[in-house]
Write a protein that binds this DNA or RNA. Structure first.
Length: 805
DNA sequence: GTAGGGTTAG
């Protein structure tokens, strides 16, 4: 392998430290008044062929060997070229240039840089030919520091007026996100040509600034530079970036006027532009007219369908490309385009098929493809396969790590997500907005406000540019961690709030049971000029369902379609089943599920099951569990709920039967656990947990409170227990449930007047709920308990959930 | 017999 031969490493610092500072010469000197180039360079083009031949002969390389070297480089036989190079006399700049060019052309940018440093180390002076290659290599490795160092050398050698070098610098600075430096170079260039203008147009696109690119494109035509195929490709990219159809159409007309429509790169750029501007039909019409389509053109069309929510067309497009007429083989980009469709369709098998195809074709390992696979597996619920791809990756970057964190979060592996986030920091990756937004979602599920605040501090410290993406995740995280006040502060400080921000804050108040306040926020949102979407109504209906505001719930449900043309989705139906269940209208809830336009999920049935339990309707519960098991046979919660219902009704044989069934299937109940924080430390309690050093105090307080709240609570609610069973269960009594231990610990360790905040991994049981209400009354303290769905604010003997959850 | 700008993707 060519790379093995490139084992000559010189540390960058040893060779380029003298060029580390950014060159200021071009900015400090006065702007040239005319466009006459300052002649300061040794222009090799002025040398005659004879001179060059004589020079090359004089350094001991025969013309034949140089021709062979060039031919190897030109045909991509880098390995042979490298072997030849090592045996040649290396004192001429020419042979180094040829080698560096070869490496750059093969995408071996780091190796090209190392070759340049080696050249300098051996005392060979680079010339005007060397720098365009080297600068391109700097852009390739996105090395701003290296680029600046090379730029210094260019100035020192008086080559900063060379138009080729300047053009390369423009592109390099834009690619490393310093487009202002590109602008300065462009502005100060003594002479600009079409390539200089094109470099600026494409430079702005690389920097993500499509509008500046289009303005530059217009200006270049105004000053009479004209345009060529590359101007069109770059400006079409700008239109695609900004979804600017009008400009895109104009450029398309220019393409036709200039007869450029047969150029495959133009073709793919046009399709891509139309696709990104939401005009997949235009893209399709243009694509159909292309007689011979290459793989990039096909990929652009597949991508356009995918982007415009036409997954089936994307797949059939892939089949067409492989058809007898075109017979084009899908490449890595084709697969990368198709994988998100599998994610959206939750089509795990299709994703696996693409993975298999990639392996058969030898496309792996490929960083982007592997990242897309992690994403697909994560979204399709197979975190194990995502992990497998991740662990086999030869190379990773921030995006692949973000994808793995997201896969964990999507599959409720929040601890693993946080662990991966920590690894990412240890490996010195600089987390970005995506990293934080995803990791915050993991914290939202399992953390307490203190940990959340720490990650918030880190975001602040790193100066992550915010937008709304991270603040929205922060609002969600704080509300889920129980600190609604902190969520509100983030919301209030956010100057530009988008629809997601509003939906998130409404949901924040919803899960804390402040239903009525959510309706006010909804009205504020509309006054702020936002049209609600499906998620807004999930927030609103959740608010109604959690706070038990039945009438408003129906009002919003009806308003969705009538006022906003939004079809209720499965989540909206879920909220309505909750509401009907709460009202005790179980038959109506069942009919409502039966009449749903889409197939009910196990979650929908789960809502009805919770209602059945609340209203002690075992008959319906049995029917509902059958539905749940047919969809989700290892739904532990469902087994437990049914078993408890049987137990409460004194139907011990049935309860035992359900427990046996669980055992048979190897299902284990999730053990309850409650957490709270005190003095910056998180304390974790399990049921009947005596592991804490001063747990005897906790148990003493619990004893006092149990007496005051009526220790017979538990026994009264399960009074149909047999005496033997009663004794057996004494040890597992709800009196010692984790949440009660945590409440006692909180009461002991927090200041009077401060609420006691607890998070719990599973739903609060009826006994603990009843006890918490009494404790709040007796101690005159607010107790806040968050479970997997909502928060219960216990105050003055009442709960914000209205005793339905 | 060496240079600069360019398409699709996570």
């Amino acid at each position: 392998m060519a790379k093995d031969l490139l084992n000559f490493h010189i540390p960058i610092a040893a060779t380029s430290s003298e060029y580390r500072t950014f060159p200021t010469k071009i900015h400090a000197s006065s702007k040239p008044q005319n466009h006459e180039p300052r002649i300061r360079r040794h222009d090799s083009r002025k040398r005659t062929t004879f001179d060059r031949r004589r020079e090359l002969r004089s350094v001991g390389n025969s013309i034949l060997s140089i021709r062979r070297l060039l031919s190897n480089v030109n045909t991509g036989c880098l390995e042979t070229a490298l072997q030849m190079f090592e045996q040649m006399n290396k004192s001429s700049t020419f042979v180094w240039n040829v080698m560096i060019r070869g490496l750059v052309d093969s995408g071996l940018f780091q190796e090209a840089m190392e070759f340049y440093y080696r050249m300098r180390f051996e005392g060979i002076e680079p010339d005007n030919f060397t720098f365009p290659f080297v600068i391109k290599a700097c852009a390739g490795v996105l090395g701003l520091k290296e680029g600046q160092s090379v730029h210094s050398t260019v100035i020192k050698l008086g080559l900063d007026v060379d138009i080729y070098i300047c053009n390369a610098l423009i592109v390099m600075y834009a690619k490393v996100s310093c487009v202002e430096d590109s602008e300065k170079i462009f502005e100060w260039m003594p002479v600009r040509d079409l390539v200089s203008w094109n470099s600026m147009v494409s430079g702005y696109v690389s920097a993500g600034d499509g509008w500046s690119s289009l303005m530059c494109f217009k200006k270049m035509q105004k000053v009479g530079v004209g345009l060529d195929r590359i101007s069109c490709i770059s400006s079409l990219g700008a239109c695609a970036l900004e979804c600017c159809l009008l400009e895109g159409k104009e450029i398309f007309c220019q393409v036709l006027r200039n007869g450029l429509e047969l150029d495959p790169m133009i073709q793919s750029s046009v399709i891509d532009m139309f696709g990104k501007c939401g005009k997949v039909d235009y893209a399709e019409r243009f694509c159909v007219g292309i007689a011979q389509k290459n793989v990039v053109v096909w990929n652009s069309m597949i991508g356009a369908y995918a982007l415009n929510d036409k997954p089936l067309e994307s797949f059939s497009c892939m089949e067409m490309m492989q058809g007898a007429k075109d017979n084009v083989t899908p490449d890595t980009v084709t697969l990368i385009n198709l994988l998100p469709l599998c994610s959206n369709l939750r089509a795990l098998l299709k994703g696996k098929a693409i993975h298999g195809y990639a392996i058969r074709k030898g496309y792996l390992s490929h960083l982007v493809l592997e990242t897309a696979l992690i994403d697909t597996y994560g979204k399709c619920g197979s975190v194990m396969l995502a992990e497998r791809v991740f662990s086999h990756m030869k190379r990773r970057n921030l995006v692949s790590l973000n994808a793995m964190i997201a896969a964990y979060v999507q599959n409720s592996k929040d601890r693993e997500a946080i662990e991966t986030f920590r690894d990412l920091q240890l490996e010195s990756y600089a987390p970005d907005q995506m990293t934080f937004a995803t990791t915050l979602a993991a914290y939202a599920e399992i953390a307490l406000p203190k940990e959340g605040k720490q990650i918030h501090g880190l975001i602040y410290k790193l100066g992550i540019s915010l937008g709304t993406y991270v603040p929205n995740a922060l609002i969600h995280m704080y509300s889920k961690c129980g600190d609604l006040q902190a969520a509100r502060e983030v919301f209030d400080r956010l100057v530009f709030k988008d629809l997601v921000t509003w939906n998130t804050i409404i949901m924040a108040y919803a899960i804390h049971g402040f239903g009525a306040y959510c309706f006010r926020l909804f009205s504020d949102m509309k006054n702020d000029g936002h049209e609600p979407n499906g998620s807004t109504f999930v927030s609103l209906l959740s608010a109604c369902s959690i706070a038990g505001i039945v009438d408003e719930g129906w009002k919003y449900f009806d308003s969705m379609k009538r006022d906003y043309g939004l079809d209720p989705g499965i989540e909206h139906y879920g909220c309505m089943v909750d509401l009907l269940g709460r009202a005790g209208n179980l038959d109506r809830a069942k009919c409502f599920i039966d009449e749903m336009p889409s197939e009910p999920t196990s979650r929908i049935w789960g809502s009805l099951l919770a209602a059945c339990r609340h209203h002690r309707n075992i008959k319906l519960a049995e029917l509902v569990t059958n539905h749940i098991f047919s969809l989700d046979s290892d739904n532990t919660g469902c087994y437990v709920l049914l078993a408890n219902m049987y137990a409460e009704a004194g139907r011990w044989e049935d309860a035992e039967r359900i427990r046996c069934l669980m055992k048979k299937q190897g299902l284990k109940t999730t053990s309850s656990c409650s957490i709270l924080e005190n003095n910056g430390k998180t304390y974790k309690f399990k049921n009947n947990d005596k592991s804490l050093a001063d747990s005897y105090i906790v148990f003493d307080v619990l004893d006092i409170l149990s007496r005051k709240t009526g220790a017979d609570l538990y026994f009264s609610s399960v009074s149909k227990l047999k005496p033997a069973e009663l004794l057996k269960r004494r040890a597992n009594s709800p009196i010692f449930h984790s949440v009660r231990l945590a409440i006692c610990f909180g009461l002991i360790n927090t200041t009077v007047g401060e609420p006691v905040l607890i998070r719990k991994n599973i739903r609060v049981c009826e006994d603990c709920h009843r006890a918490a209400k009494k404790i709040s009354l007796i101690t005159n303290r607010e107790v806040v308990v968050g479970d997997s769905k909502q928060y219960h604010h216990f105050k003055d003997g009442r709960c914000s959930c209205g005793d339905y959850w």
